[in-house]
Design a protein around this nucleic acid. Structure first.
Lengths: 132, 132
DNA sequence: ATCAATTGCGTAATGCTATAACGTGTGCGA
DNA sequence: TCGCACACGTTATAGCATTACGCAATTGAT
């Protein structure tokens, strides 16, 4: 699956996330885009939905925020599982793909006859710079 | 760490979660406990905070809900990582502990000099009964 | 070319999730 | 008995997400 041409709103949201150094909440994105004509949360959520669908943005469930995918080149949907380490001090996010973890979890799910659709792996703590 | 005697509110919330067949949101718990004198969200959240601290309840970040721990005997804080499979049809949750996954993730975190504090592994999909 | 279906967009209103900021009562050790 | 820690109760507010409605642009089959 290749990423289609982004619409104006989608491009604005994506650019905002790309330039940010930490995950942003939908409402933070909204505030940053008011000068570009954004007025309501739904404009952000609709763009985010598409960007998530295209796999160029990730949602961080544990902090209700969004980040641009760290692998602009490849499409993230092909990576299987993705894990995130989220620094609670500086907000920085490290993205991680591991086939071992993937394989192990999938094996367990299979043994339970569970059909996986979406997955979330998020570790919160402190990054190297912030861990005093 | 052993679980202290629960207060009245904590016990009410814990019982509600234990009897439920699926995860409950804080507000759902609140509604179920109105007859027992609960009137405000904070009463629920305060009880939940303690129950989470004691390790007898888990928070499911991806669906903003809470479940009683599936291992009443042992204390969940000792298990290291916990993974959940959440059925999007029936709401049932399967809890899972795996040292392999644990070890692998911890290894990666260590290589990044990242100090982990809280972790979330949640897989959403359909359980054996619901996957038509 | 036209009509229908799809998709994106804008706005307002609403609902759900979580916390802040008060103050009260109770038990307990110094 | 004073001070502290902790649980509790209430009100208000902040933060996150969706529902519902209507319009505009695009596509694509007839």
């Amino acid at each position: 699956m290749t990423t289609p041409q982004l619409t104006k709103n989608q491009a604005l949201v994506f650019d905002t996330l790309t330039k940010a150094e930490a995950p942003l909440s939908a409402y933070t994105i909204l505030d940053k885009l008011r000068d570009h004509g954004f007025r309501a949360p739904l404009q952000v959520y609709r763009a985010l939905d598409k960007l998530l669908e295209y796999g160029v943005v990730h949602r961080l469930e544990s902090i209700n925020s969004f980040v641009a995918c760290a692998h602009p080149d490849e499409n993230c949907h092909s990576h299987g599982l993705v894990a995130f380490a989220i620094c609670e001090s500086c907000g920085q996010v490290i993205e991680f793909h591991d086939h071992e973890v993937d394989h192990r979890l999938m094996g367990w799910l299979k043994s339970q006859k569970f059909k996986a659709e979406k997955s979330t792996i998020e570790i919160r703590g402190h990054c190297a710079s912030c861990a005093a």
